Simulated assay, not measured.
Amino acid sequence: MTSAVPAAGAAGTAGPSWTFLTNHGHVLLAVAADPEARVADLAARVGITPRSVLQILKDLEDGGYLHRRHEGRRTRYALEPHQHFRHPAVASREIDGLIGLFAAPTAAAGEDPEERQEKAGEGSTTSRSGEA
């Protein structure tokens, strides 16, 4: 018998004591999903404070994982998907694999993963870095 893990912050429940991705990973994925998101929107999506998001964005920028570009009063984020992970165990891998994993739609029940990959290859050719 399996039991579902309650969502963090659900009424009357405590969130999990740990997760597989750090807040840095979650902010990176949130930026990948919406490069024009406001800090408050990123904070709400990740479940941390705007101040924490700002610090993480600074860390990611200092590490070369993203660049900020100001357009009027808005900030647009451009990811550098070919940067490598920082942990020695996976330092040979680029972050675009993680981004792609979370950006890809989940397979429908019974759908062949190879067919899904072929369909994904037929999609748009937009750049994650925000460059045309």
Score class of each variant (00 low, 15 high):
T2C: 01
T2D: 11
T2F: 08
T2Q: 08
T2N: 10
S3D: 05
S3P: 00
A4T: 10
A4C: 02
V5C: 08
V5W: 00
P6N: 04
A7E: 11
G9C: 05
A10Q: 12
A11I: 06
G12T: 05
G12C: 01
T13C: 11
A14W: 03
G15E: 01
P16V: 06
L21K: 07
T22A: 12
L28N: 01
L28V: 02
L28F: 06
L29R: 07
V31A: 01
A32E: 08
A32C: 10
A33N: 10
A33P: 01
E36N: 12
E36T: 14
E36V: 10
A37R: 11
R38N: 03
R38V: 03
V39N: 11
V39W: 03
V39L: 08
A40K: 14
A40C: 00
D41A: 15
L42E: 06
V46D: 02
V46M: 07
G47W: 02
G47L: 03
I48W: 01
I48M: 04
I48E: 03
T49R: 04
T49M: 01
T49L: 02
T49I: 00
P50A: 11
P50H: 07
R51A: 14
S52V: 12
S52Q: 14
Q55T: 11
I56C: 02
I56Y: 05
K58Q: 12
E61W: 05
G63A: 15
G63S: 14
G63F: 06
G64M: 08
Y65M: 13
L66E: 03
L66V: 08
R68K: 15
R69F: 03
E71M: 09
G72H: 07
G72A: 08
R73Q: 13
R74A: 09
R74F: 04
T75G: 02
T75S: 11
R76N: 05
R76I: 12
Y77L: 05
A78S: 15
A78I: 05
E80G: 00
E80Q: 14
P81A: 06
P81R: 09
P81Y: 10
Q83M: 15
Q83W: 00
H84S: 14
F85D: 08
F85P: 12
F85M: 07
H87A: 10
P88N: 05
P88C: 05
P88K: 03
A89E: 14
V90E: 10
V90R: 04
S92K: 06
S92A: 12
R93M: 13
R93A: 12
E94I: 04
E94M: 09
I95F: 04
I95Y: 04
D96Y: 13
L98C: 08
L98T: 05
L101D: 00
F102V: 08
F102C: 07
F102D: 04
A103L: 14
A104W: 09
P105K: 13
T106A: 14
A107W: 00
A107K: 01
A108R: 14
A109M: 07
G110N: 09
E111Y: 00
E111F: 00
D112E: 04
P113I: 11
E114A: 14
E114S: 08
R116E: 02
R116C: 00
E118T: 09
K119R: 15
G121M: 10
E122F: 09
E122H: 11
E122Y: 08
G123P: 05
S124T: 11
T125V: 07
T125I: 00
T125Y: 02
T125G: 13
S127D: 15
S127P: 01
R128V: 10
S129E: 09
S129T: 15
S129D: 15
